[in-house]
Amino acid sequence: MIKQWMGAAVLALAWTMPGMAVAQTAAESASGLGARLAQGYIAPAMQQFHEAAGQMGKALQSACGDPAAGSDEVAAAFEHLVAAWSGIEFLRFGPLVQANRFESIYFWPDPRGVTTRQVQGLLAKPAGEIPDAQGLAKHSVALQGLPALEYVLYRDKGLLSGKQGDDQAAACAYALAVAGNLERVGGELYALWKADGEFARLFSQPGPDNPLYRNAQEVAAEVVKALSTGLQFQVDVKLAPSLGADAGKAAPRKAPFWRSDLAPVSLRAAAQGMLAFYDAGGYSFPGAEWIDQNVRGELQRAVDQLEGMRGGTEQLWRDEESHRGLVLVRLLLNNAKNLVDQDVAPALGVRIGFNALDGD
C-alpha cells in the first residue's frame, strides 16, 4: 500500500527566496504541519464524510420502506453527503487517490454520459439481480459513487421525483448499495487518517526512515499542491465549462450536481473546506502577513458570495445577476490559487510540480 502512495508524495523542492531568514521561517512553518492538518482538519472531515454516507443509507432504508414518509429526509441526507464530500475532494493524495477511491466516490466530469448509461443498464434488471454494496465495489467506478446516486434519486421518475417508475424496487436496492459502498470507502479513509491511522502517522512524522515524507518540507509540498490543485479544480473544471462566456451561453448541465440543484452547495463546501484546511495549518509569514490575510480573504469572500445563492442550477447559471456572482466566485478562487502558487509556496520553501489535473 505504501508504494502506491509514493508517486503522489514526490514534489520538487526549492528555496525560491534567498537568505537564512527565509529558510528559517519556511522551516518553522513546515515543522509539525502534517500533524496539525491531519488532526485539525483531515481526520474530522473524513469522519464526517463516513458518517454522512451512513446517514444516507439510513434515510434510504426508511424512504424505501415508506416512500411517502421519507423523501425530505433523503434529500437532506444527500445534501449533507455532497457537502461532506466537497470538503475533502481537494485532498487528492495518499488514501483518496489510492485504490481508485476518488473515482469510486466521484466519477465526474463525465462528458460521455458513462454513468447514466451504466445505471440505466443496471436498473433494467430485476431488483433481485442488483448487487449489494460489497458486490457493487467490483463493478465499474461509474456505478459506485455520488453521480450515480444523484441520478437514481433525481432523474425523471427517480426516487425523489414524486413519480413512480416501473423499476422502483431495483432503484431502491441500487441506491442502498451505492450508499453502503460510499460508507465503506469513507470508513477506509477515516481509518487511514485518524490519530493512529497508517497514513496519518506517515504524514505527521516525516523523517529519513519514512518511505513517503523524508522531511517536513516534503509534507509542506504535498499540502501546497493539494490546495493549488483543489482551487484549480473549482475554477477550471466545476465553473469555467458551465459558466461559458456569459449568462446566455451558460451550460448549467456541466455544473456539478446539477440534477439535485446542489452545485452552489458543492462549491461553497469546497471553498469552506479549503479555508478550514488552510486555517488548520497555522502558518506564520513574518514580515509578509499580507499573504495569510489575502488567502483567507479571497476564500472567505467566495464562501460568502455562494452562501447567498439559492434556487435551481438552471436558473442560477442563466440569470445575469447570479451569473455575475458565479464569475466573481471563479475570480476569487483563481486569485486564491495564484496566492498559493506565487506567495505561500515560496514562503514555505517549495515549488509547484505536476498535479492531478495535468493532462486532463
Rank of each mutant, 00 (worst) to 15 (best):
I2T: 08
Q4G: 02
W5H: 10
M6Q: 15
V10F: 08
W15I: 12
W15Q: 15
P18D: 12
G19I: 08
A21H: 04
V22C: 00
Q24G: 05
A26S: 10
A27I: 00
E28T: 03
L37K: 02
I42Y: 00
P44S: 03
Q48C: 01
A52S: 15
A53N: 03
G54D: 08
M56N: 11
M56G: 07
M56I: 07
A63Q: 09
G65W: 11
A68R: 11
G70Y: 11
D72W: 13
A75R: 15
A76M: 08
A77C: 10
L81A: 15
W85F: 12
F90G: 01
L91F: 14
P95G: 04
P95T: 08
A99V: 01
Y106R: 11
P109R: 07
P109Y: 13
D110L: 13
D110H: 10
G113Q: 14
G113E: 11
Q118M: 15
V119M: 09
L122W: 11
E129F: 13
I130A: 08
I130S: 07
P131G: 12
D132Q: 08
A133Y: 00
G135S: 15
K138A: 13
L146A: 13
V152Y: 05
L153A: 05
L160Y: 05
G165T: 08
G165H: 07
G165F: 06
D166L: 12
A171C: 12
Y174K: 01
Y174P: 02
A175N: 07
L176N: 13
A177L: 04
A177F: 02
A177M: 03
G180S: 11
L182K: 06
L182Q: 05
R184S: 06
E188C: 01
L189R: 02
Y190L: 02
Y190A: 00
K194M: 03
D196V: 03
E198V: 08
F203S: 03
P208V: 12
N210F: 09
R214D: 15
A216E: 15
A220C: 09
A221G: 14
E222S: 15
V223L: 09
V224I: 14
A226M: 15
Q234C: 12
V235W: 09
L243P: 02
D246V: 10
A247D: 14
G248T: 12
A250T: 10
A251P: 02
A251H: 13
P252A: 06
R253P: 01
A255L: 11
A255N: 09
F257W: 03
D261M: 01
L262E: 06
L262K: 07
A263D: 04
A263N: 00
S266G: 07
S266P: 01
A269P: 07
A270M: 09
A271Q: 11
L275A: 14
F277Y: 15
Y283W: 14
F285A: 09
A288Y: 02
E289D: 14
Q293K: 08
Q293V: 12
V295R: 04
Q300N: 08
G312E: 05
T313C: 06
Q315T: 05
W317F: 14
D319R: 02
H323Q: 00
R324H: 01
L328E: 03
V329I: 01
L331D: 04
L332N: 06
L333V: 11
N335P: 00
N338A: 10
N338V: 08
V340F: 00
Q342I: 00
V344C: 05
A347W: 13
I352C: 00
G353Y: 06
G353D: 10
